[in-house]
């Protein structure tokens, strides 16, 4: 039997595919219904010891997205006490400078009283048809103001104007950011608190 594979290569190959075929049923029978459409089931199918059916049935099931997962950038705002939206962005322009395909346009606001530049973006545009999802803007932003989103279900029937995201589409609350990237948000908040300490 030892040299069976060597002598009957095709038979051995067919054995492998047949093994795969039957295994899908055996695993399903053993693991039962819990295997599908449950969080544990999805998680089990991503482990290194998974056997049998490998499919994650999107859209009914969804692969858990890792925290670092990145699609498009968005702008984080802090919610004020009266419901106002305080953008963290100071229009410093680092993101637009570091952006490899140069898809970020920032129009810095001017203070109406003095006429000098004020640290807010008056307009902020990202052309999502050019964006390469590299994450540099989020990585090098010194104010934790621009972050990478997890939302990938973006397909639509048109492009053009609707694919140049302005402030209204880009702004998302800090609570959303904390929900998609809890560990990062906590670490950054701690770092900011640390920075603020000596001043106080």
């Amino acid at each position: 039997m030892k040299n069976f594979g060597k002598r009957f290569g095709v038979m051995s190959s067919l054995g492998v595919t047949m093994g795969h075929f039957f295994n899908t049923y055996i695993v399903d029978l053993v693991k039962g219904k819990k295997r599908y459409r449950t969080t544990e089931g999805i998680e089990a199918r991503r482990q290194s010891d998974t056997e049998g059916i490998f499919t994650i049935q999107y859209p009914e099931e969804q692969l858990p997205l890792p925290e670092e997962f990145r699609v498009l950038p968005f702008l984080v705002y802090d919610e004020g006490e009266n419901g106002e939206k305080n953008l963290r962005c100071t229009a410093c322009g680092i993101c637009s400078k570091v952006c490899p395909p140069q898809c970020i346009w920032i129009y810095r606001a001017t203070d109406p009283a003095t006429g000098k530049p004020s640290p807010h973006p008056a307009e902020f545009h990202i052309d999502i048809d050019i964006c390469m999802n590299c994450g540099f803007c989020a990585e090098y932003c010194p104010f934790d103001a621009i972050k990478m989103d997890h939302d990938f279900e973006l397909s639509g029937y048109t492009r053009g104007e609707s694919h140049v995201f302005g402030l209204d589409t880009l702004m998302k609350p800090v609570s959303y950011y904390e929900s998609i990237r809890p560990a990062n948000a906590a670490r950054e908040a701690a770092a900011r608190a640390e920075k603020a300490k000596p001043k106080a």
Binding site: Y58, P59, Q62, L63, V71, L72, I128, D129, C131, M132, N133, F152, E153, L154, S155, G156, Y157, T158, R159, H163
Partner: peptide, 22 residues
């Protein structure tokens, strides 16, 4: 003429499936 645009670089397979459902 294009019917559906899928943003992303590259769109993940799930995003592609979403585009096909669109």
């Amino acid at each position: 003429p294009v019917d559906v645009y899928i943003p992303g670089c590259p769109p993940t397979p799930q995003a592609l499936l979403h585009g096909l459902m669109t």
